[in-house]
Amino acid sequence: MTKLTVGPWIAAQKLPSRNVARDRLAFLERTQVRQATPTVAGFPLVGLGGSCGKPCFALPYTLTWDDQNTQALEALAGEFGCYVEYGVYPHLKLHENDQEVAAVQDWTTFATVYMRPGYDRAEELLVRLADTFRPAGN
């Protein structure tokens, strides 16, 4: 699989320069791109991380962390050359440079995954995360 294909969608919403940081009409123009929300591997993009700007994808189920699924997350992270850093929610970071490539959130009414769009295996990792945590019968 490949990097995420949502880069242009994200870039179209970012502040192009500090000169327009207070320009309400420029902001409204940038938000027009949200009317056509993309999906990746069938997962809807539901927004961007507030501090990190990573695209956020909704999983079609809720998630509650426990010993079994955190061990599964650590095993999956290892397959992608990552380790898990546990903060408010788990982040997958590359061993080689500590770059965050994904984060999985459980504290909403549905699980979400934040993905680094430029990560070479982003789409594959998104699919594998969804499969790893999918409840039986879903």
Score class of each variant (00 low, 15 high):
F80V: 08
F43Y: 15
P135A: 06
T64E: 10
A58Q: 14
A58K: 13
Q35G: 12
Q13S: 05
G47W: 05
R24W: 12
D106H: 13
F133K: 03
L129D: 00
C82G: 08
K93S: 04
T62N: 08
S17N: 11
N69F: 06
Q13A: 05
Q32S: 09
Y86A: 04
D131N: 13
L125Y: 01
Y61F: 15
Y83C: 04
P38I: 06
K3A: 07
F133S: 01
F133I: 00
W107S: 09
R22W: 03
A11N: 12
M115S: 01
H91E: 08
K93W: 05
Y114V: 00
T64Y: 07
L25Y: 11
R24V: 11
L73P: 02
E124P: 02
T108R: 14
V20N: 05
R128G: 03
A41C: 09
R121T: 00
V33T: 14
V88R: 13
Q35C: 11
L63V: 04
L4S: 01
G47I: 02
N138V: 11
E29L: 11
L63T: 01
L25V: 10
R34H: 10
A122T: 04
G78S: 07
T31Y: 13
F57L: 05
C52E: 15
L126D: 01
N19I: 02
K54R: 14
F133N: 00
A136H: 12
A102N: 05
M115E: 03
A102T: 02
G7T: 13
R18N: 10
G49T: 07
V84N: 00
N97E: 09
E74F: 00
P60I: 02
D23V: 03
R128N: 07
S51E: 14
T62S: 14
R128A: 12
L48Y: 06
L28K: 15
P8E: 10
Y114E: 05
E123L: 04
F133R: 00
Y114D: 02
E79W: 00
M115A: 01
P38Q: 08
M1P: 09
F27I: 04
C56I: 13
L45C: 15
R22I: 05
V46T: 15
W107L: 09
N97T: 12
Y86G: 00
G53T: 04
N19P: 03
A21F: 08
T70D: 08
M1Q: 09
A36C: 11
L92E: 02
L129M: 08
V6E: 04
V6P: 02
